[in-house]
């Protein structure tokens, strides 16, 4: 393949990926079977009794009564959901997913609470491990391959 054609094809494909991503992001909520966070925040009364799915940062947990407060964020704002039946072991700053029934006052009667991050530090852990992984795989790749700048082609070393 000619070098110019190669770059052109790659650019078109990358544009295609960004196009798909934009389409995905704008249509995701149409296919998401639960109310969006924005809907729950703006018209909470309309969704009382409905099945909801929220993910957010844990603000506080009161294990004695089994209640947790979860900060749910969306593009245009945020609200704090009171989660009853909060049976997960998680510290403030952690992240949880809650699946349950919406109640008045932006509360959720939880059927399932799953811990995504047990504490605020979990995010740093994921980033550090991923950065190590990225460096590792790049170093490994260039042990076996080199990039020929003239032909813009990866060649076996």
């Amino acid at each position: 393949m000619h070098t110019f054609v190669r770059i052109l094809v790659a650019l078109i494909l990358v544009a295609g990926v960004f196009g798909l991503g934009t389409h995905y992001s704008t249509h995701r909520s149409d296919h998401w079977e639960y109310p969006t966070y924005e809907e729950l925040d703006r018209q909470p009364g309309e969704y009382v009794g409905e099945q909801v799915f929220v993910q957010g940062d844990v603000v506080e947990v009161d294990a004695t009564v089994g209640t947790g407060w979860v900060r749910v964020m969306y593009a245009g704002g945020a609200f704090t959901a009171t989660v009853d039946g909060f049976d997960a072991s998680v510290r403030p700053g952690g992240v949880v997913q809650v699946y349950g029934v919406f109640r008045p006052g932006r509360a959720v009667a939880a059927e399932t609470v799953r811990v995504v991050n047990p504490a605020g530090a979990s995010k740093a852990y994921k980033y550090v491990v991923s950065a190590v992984g990225a460096l590792f795989v790049l170093a490994l790749f260039f042990r076996y391959w080199r990039f020929d700048l003239q032909t813009l082609t990866f060649e076996v070393r």
């Binding site: 494909l13 990358v14 295609g16 990926v17 960004f18 196009g19 798909l20 991503g21 934009t22 389409h23 995905y24 992001s25 704008t26 995701r28």
Partner: peptide, 16 residues
Amino acid sequence: DLAFAGFNRLGGALLL
């Protein structure tokens, strides 16, 4: 940021 969402979906992964 919205456009990045395609990266870890089937179609985006195959195009990339």
